[in-house]
Simulated assay, not measured.
Amino acid sequence: MPSRRVITGRSQEPRRRFAEELRLLRTEKGDSLRQLEVVLGWNASTFGKMEGGQSLGSPEIVEALDQHYGTTPMLLWELAVADPSQFKEQYRRYMLLEAEAIGLWHYGVSRPPGMLHTTGYAREALAAGGLKGEELEQQVEARIGRRKVLEGVDAPPFRMILSEAVLRNSLRDPQEWREQLECLSEAAERPKVTLHVLPFGTGLHSLDSTDMMFLRLVDGRTVAYTENDVRGELVEETSRVERLHRTYDAVRDLALNPAESRTFILRMLEEVPCEPST
């Protein structure tokens, strides 16, 4: 098995590094894109898009490439998303799709979306789930690394609806909580980010206990990921995704508009002490 080149700065420009590594591996082996099509069974244009940075492929393609080149299993997760040990098995398929989504919609019941967690928020949230020590720090790093999805000129449009409970369920450390609220307020000012607050008193709805994310993919499909306290599910069936999307739209109609929502968060910030208590 060939030794892998040492790659540093794992969270920086993952798509570019992934594409470069694929091109280099193919060149070293002397394959053409057409030869990959014949040997592995996927269309040559698919491999071309992966090497050009337009697509991350799929877990099945990446596993086949790993076997073909004799590289470390799940090369994609080392380069394009994160070290595979950083994300639990049930999230890996979702993380792949999130990394190459061209549009995202989120609804949060009690917590902000993971890709907008501050370090302090991520650490307290993950520690509350029982993580500690080195595993905790790895998971914090992985979660913070997801911010890259929303950064840069090619960042996808992102709409989020936050239940008021998200903004009321504060961290133990007031300063870290202030940083999290400031992070949300600043995110709402980005041109590709739209934030809605769903205030208390709007009545019951079908997402009362379900966090949800929709991902628009490069092939035109939309998939949904739903999660509650005990399980998460990636939904790819078109009819189910459409039903969930109608539910999401109904909840959005109950929420404050973006300007009202940002004002709401700024009022919340005014309630948080600016300096540590003595």
Rank of each mutant, 00 (worst) to 15 (best):
A80Y: 00
L181S: 02
F264S: 02
P59V: 02
K29D: 15
V251M: 07
T118L: 02
P14M: 13
T238A: 15
A188C: 10
E151H: 09
E28G: 15
Q67C: 07
L254P: 01
I144P: 02
K132Q: 13
D253Q: 15
T222D: 07
E176P: 00
R267Y: 11
R243E: 15
P156E: 11
V223N: 00
R143K: 09
M115H: 02
S3T: 09
P156N: 04
R17N: 09
F200W: 15
A142T: 01
P59A: 12
A255W: 01
P2R: 05
K49D: 04
L266W: 12
R23V: 07
K49I: 00
V62L: 07
F18I: 03
G52V: 06
H196C: 04
T46G: 08
Y69T: 11
S32P: 08
L75R: 01
F200V: 11
S185T: 09
E98R: 02
P84H: 11
D229M: 08
Q90Y: 15
E182N: 08
Y107F: 15
F18E: 01
A128R: 11
P174H: 11
E124H: 02
S32E: 12
I102N: 13
D208Y: 05
Y107Q: 03
T222H: 05
T210Y: 05
A188K: 00
G145S: 07
A187S: 12
Q138G: 00
E189D: 15
